[in-house]
Design a protein around this nucleic acid. Structure first.
Lengths: 142, 142
DNA sequence: ATCATGTCGTTGACACAGTCAACTACATAG
DNA sequence: CTATGTAGTTGACTGTGTCAACGACATGAT
């Protein structure tokens, strides 16, 4: 009865995944919206990055980024300092608290990810990620 | 550089897909939010269904459903009539206009879907959908 | 019949996420 | 110095999902 269109499967999966992530985060005592977690992840993986880097690389709206950055800063999870070379840029770095929070998020994510792929082979999961990224690229460069 | 966690790939893909769907819909002159399109699809595939059917089967919030149903009704795309057997239930059926709209949506979706899977084998796509649904089920029944 | 309990659906209030346009501040080519 | 472009911020708005409270109806027990 489920349609053969990949779009529906996608919606269902992301919906379930967001739920699982929220539950796992709440269980871990993490009180951050998903977008903030994702942003913090990026900043931790790429310290010294700027809002513009995130906007172009992760294709997020810069307005959205500005808001999330402000709140992460206000929560003491990242630090913002001006770029000496370019007065417009603001360099984002995780604070110690931000790094700790990142670890907890990564744990929760790992746990949710493990539940998600339960019963599936390693190769299947790899192929899934590969296919997902191929599809995302297909949609973008058109 | 992309993480091995499936969650990120998922976010990126859904984001790109929603964009593609919105573009395709706008090109086709369809002026409906995604949630309304999805709801209309369900009603067209399952005429005589109730809001409760949708809530349980598609795991959507009943409040959300009530709102979308109201707007689809107001747009003349579906009809609502009381169930003779149970005065609480309201049976949803697509109108002629709703069916026509559904066809146009299906076309746009097919087009976006085709772009998304460009260059991928039929088997790969099938496996993707299969994996996505297996994962969604994993996350739910836990 | 009536009453307690449960279900279907609606509504209000809210949080989160994404988008667009206008704006400031700074950079740089000419 | 001026024109143009870029990084970032802010406001206003739409769409989506969630929670709680509620009205209307159904049903089983007494």
């Amino acid at each position: 009865m489920s349609s053969t269109h990949p779009g529906d499967a996608l919606h269902r999966l992301l919906h379930a995944y967001k739920h699982a992530m929220r539950d796992a985060s709440r269980d871990a005592g993490i009180d951050l919206p998903v977008s903030h977690m994702r942003m913090l992840k990026v900043v931790c993986h790429h310290p010294q990055c700027t809002a513009h880097d995130i906007a172009t690389h992760w294709r997020r709206d810069k307005a959205q980024i500005a808001r999330v950055v402000k709140e992460l800063d206000h929560a003491g999870l990242i630090g913002i300092r001006p770029d000496a070379d370019d007065g417009r840029r603001r360099i984002l770095t995780p604070t110690a608290a931000g790094k700790r929070m990142f670890q907890r998020i990564a744990d929760a994510e790992r746990e949710a990810g493990a539940r998600m792929v339960r019963g599936l082979s390693r190769e299947a999961v790899d192929q899934f990620v590969e296919l997902a990224e191929a599809m995302a690229n297909n949609l973008r460069k058109s």
